[in-house]
Nucleic acid binder design. Sequence first.
DNA 1: TATGAATGAGAATTCATTCAT
DNA 2: GATGAATGAATTCTCATTCAT
Lengths: 205, 205, 205, 205
Amino acid sequence: MVIYINYFGGANLNTKTEIKKREKVDSLYDSAYELFTTKGINDTAISDIVKRAGVAKGTFYLYFKSKYDILDKIIMRKSNEVLEEAIYKTKSKDFKSFEDEVLFFIDFIIDKLEENRLMLKLIHKNLSWGVLKRFSNEYEGIHKIYLMFEKGYIDSGLTKDEIEKILFIIIDLTGSITYSAIILKEPAPIEEMRPILFDAIRKII
Amino acid sequence: MVIYINYFGGANLNTKTEIKKREKVDSLYDSAYELFTTKGINDTAISDIVKRAGVAKGTFYLYFKSKYDILDKIIMRKSNEVLEEAIYKTKSKDFKSFEDEVLFFIDFIIDKLEENRLMLKLIHKNLSWGVLKRFSNEYEGIHKIYLMFEKGYIDSGLTKDEIEKILFIIIDLTGSITYSAIILKEPAPIEEMRPILFDAIRKII
Amino acid sequence: MVIYINYFGGANLNTKTEIKKREKVDSLYDSAYELFTTKGINDTAISDIVKRAGVAKGTFYLYFKSKYDILDKIIMRKSNEVLEEAIYKTKSKDFKSFEDEVLFFIDFIIDKLEENRLMLKLIHKNLSWGVLKRFSNEYEGIHKIYLMFEKGYIDSGLTKDEIEKILFIIIDLTGSITYSAIILKEPAPIEEMRPILFDAIRKII
Amino acid sequence: MVIYINYFGGANLNTKTEIKKREKVDSLYDSAYELFTTKGINDTAISDIVKRAGVAKGTFYLYFKSKYDILDKIIMRKSNEVLEEAIYKTKSKDFKSFEDEVLFFIDFIIDKLEENRLMLKLIHKNLSWGVLKRFSNEYEGIHKIYLMFEKGYIDSGLTKDEIEKILFIIIDLTGSITYSAIILKEPAPIEEMRPILFDAIRKII
DNA sequence: TATGAATGAGAATTCATTCAT
DNA sequence: GATGAATGAATTCTCATTCAT
């Protein structure tokens, strides 16, 4: 016995289908993130990802082009999450100086990364201004940081470009030092490096 | 029938054999370096390396455990080469201040990396003090930088640890910014970033 | 556009796919058995097996972990086949004594193994009670032998354990002697050894 | 500077050279035995053997044709050792019956194999009369067992062939049961199997 | 005799991707 | 949209054997 279902019937456009679809995609994101952070990117196969996500292999290719496609998207999602939260917390406070504001912002990010070392390992080297800027249209958080900085340097007489470069240097330095200090504990644990890093940032600003 | 025994006895260092051996190993290093920098690490197979080197596959495994083994060794070799040369050039000059000395040193490294972008791509952010220190016993260049810094801060009242951390920050920052500026041209080409980086370093010192 | 859905719903047992799948697995079993018995285990490569089976290499690894995995499964399958048939034939006859029943059973097995020397070579001394018992849950034949024996010793006053040990000795001895006599012709061909073996078994019972 | 040594000079025929040679061969035997018993035959490479023996790879091929060549020789050496000792101990005692003599002999072998389970694992399936007989010219122990049996059956009226077959059955059964009981502990540990095996042997004799 | 660097064929295994269902 | 069996090229790695020294 066979049942005929019209392809364009109401059933396939309803919410249930859409929810299921989103569930699968999210499941793939979560699974890939979990495996990338624990096993490493090279040692994670698509088959591992789908197995953990509980979906079929073909489904992966319905939503992502390759392992590196999903990786890029994960990095941007996670980076943006951290930055959005850091911006939000920074904005909800008052500071006597721009310097204090930037240091609070950096401090918050370091705390977040320390809490989640595996994520740090994954986004390492990718949390740089260059990469972030590429996605700034898609992700809110990234653009907001720039605006914060522009406002801070409003009376400095510096050009927009110069401001951006300084911001870049600070973010790059933070990412780099934080990674070394937290993951490699080189040249010292993060608690020892934090004041030295802050001192350097203060001087740069 | 007569056997010829070399003066150094049976356990002698058979020169012909040893030379051939070194030639093969060097050939593997060169071949791997060439392929890693042009095709990328993931897209380079061991069979590619040995084919280019003109040796048998087994020979590779005689000297290296895996692709990542030879990669690590290449990164250390190349990093050390750059540092050794930078140290050598710096020492052969006179400077009116320690600050000038460090900036010359950094400047030389940036020039070298700019000349050889593929190498920069390969050693990427591995040119950090943390990684270097791990190999400092094996590689001369690395230790020499530290000595230069120690001398520079001789009257500063800073402890050895503090000096090392500052050195770490400077090298890390340089590596990170240089990579972005030269390879990604983000946030600006190296010529625009160089004065800003130097300014930051001068402030940190 | 219309989608046909089979009566059993989405989770249905897709017959066509399942049949194809089973065909491939069986083909691998047959191919491996053929090669193991003719070329030997060490000289049979996975690539030989799949080539003969007409499937891709990856398909092998879809169903078996390694060469030794398929070997174990083949040995159990073949051993079970022989035992099932021997049990079946024995049960379909009447005997004046338990001794006669056991000897008929053993005799049938020896005949079967003689007919198929290559199989004997492969399962060699693996046709032992110990190995069989491990698989007795999966394979019917194995359990049935035990039941036959238990019934034979019903009035002997022996414990279950003691019965099992005697059965073990008889099967082990049969397997061992049959192998030597048929394959190695040592110390004499099977026809000369059969009466002596039967005499020994009769004494043991 | 070069020293000329005449190839046929006294130096190369002297005892020192011979001793060194024997040391190397013995070292290879010991190393191979150790590795075969601990890692298994398939998982032992010639390179493992020579490394452990402390000799060069080429040296192995000076004395053995292949892995299976040295394996065969080891099995015969070890089997013969056990049998020689068992025969020696049996002969140095007086027994009231031939049956007692055989059981003592078997008992001694079981004890020896139990002491050295790894050896049992290795020679397993090879300690059969068939194999032993093939080497009886080279190894003393093997021939002596036959003589012992022939003497035991001197007044039985049995032919030489019949005696040999009985001996074969007993040795095969012992080897097989001992292996299962000691290594696999199937169907029961050796201590439980020993009386049942002895009972079976007594009945066969 | 003894060495051990070199070989390279070939073994096992993986995995991204496709496609019929 | 979803599935997962099937593919087979590609890759890593092993190892018995040779041979110049």
